[in-house]
Amino acid sequence: MLSYILRRIVATLPVMAIVALFVFSLLYIAPGDPAVVIAGDQASPEDVERIRQSLGLDRPFLIQFGSWVWRILHGDLGTSIFTNLPVSTMIGQRLGPTLSLMMVTLLLTIVVAVPLGVVAAWKAGSFIDRAIMAFAVFGFSLPVFVVGYVLAYIFALELEWLPVQGYTPITQGFWPWLQNLILPAVALGCVYIALIARITRATMLEVLQQDYIRTARAKGMGQGGILFIHALKNAAVPIVTVIGIGIALLIGGAVVTESVFAIPGLGRLTIDAILRRDYPVIQGIVLLFSFVYVLVNLMIDVTYTLVDPRIRY
């Protein structure tokens, strides 16, 4: 098992290398002289030259790439062109809010979506099933920013139950921290809940047809035992897979959600960096997100072996 995880980590290296190459090439894929692009419209020729020098753009591509990778391996993601702060510091400051938002959303999704899917499969064809599936279609069709603004209007402005915007670090208390994350998590989680509820329902329906479910009924087991002990665990592999894929959805959604709710996270940083053409920051963020995604995939594969004894690596 441990050797499998090690092998998998080694196998992620080429993936990360390709991502790194792609991220680094961003600057060159964009049309025009990178230095001019970075300097912007108002820059003087001296500014452009200064940027070119400081980024080492006058050197050959491969050497630039090599030294960039070398620095990253030493934990140096470069320096922001705009703020002159190290990129790693900037990302570090913004990591907390984004991670908080993603964790709360993930938790909320699993807690809501999986039981919904199980109930829908159990009562397949009934009114409850159809209501849940209608809700899923609805959740799927609404964009995050629409849900976000509507929620903020109802629960923050009208009812005044929750704050409209902002973020409080968890170091200042659990409730203040959570209070600020509830609405964004619901907004962000809508699509995700719909997706996972549907997958859970479909997989459970298939599992409930299996012979061993009939055996469980023959034993005289109650509905709860059948659904949660025998069926859900067998349905887990596809559900876990989709939860993992959904994390990519979350990363994309976080960018929009953070803008709607003014959360100072990585999403906001990304947008700001793109608007300012702050390439080192963009590169750092993309690299980080890819790394997280590769890590999540590894975790999913390891989860398979915990759920299903037939899967061996």
């Binding site: 012979d211 009939r214 055996t215 023959a218 034993k219 005289g220 035992g225 002990i229 067998n234 004894p309």
Partner: peptide, 30 residues
């Protein structure tokens, strides 16, 4: 009644057992 006073065994025994639950637990469930 089910599994206590009256019980049943099936064709294709491998499919009739939960593939991801140890057999000791499956007997103990009953």
């Amino acid at each position: 009644l089910q599994g206590a006073a009256m019980s049943m065994i099936f064709q294709n025994p491998r499919a009739a057992l939960n593939p991801i639950r140890a057999i000791g637990l499956q007997i103990a469930d009953a």
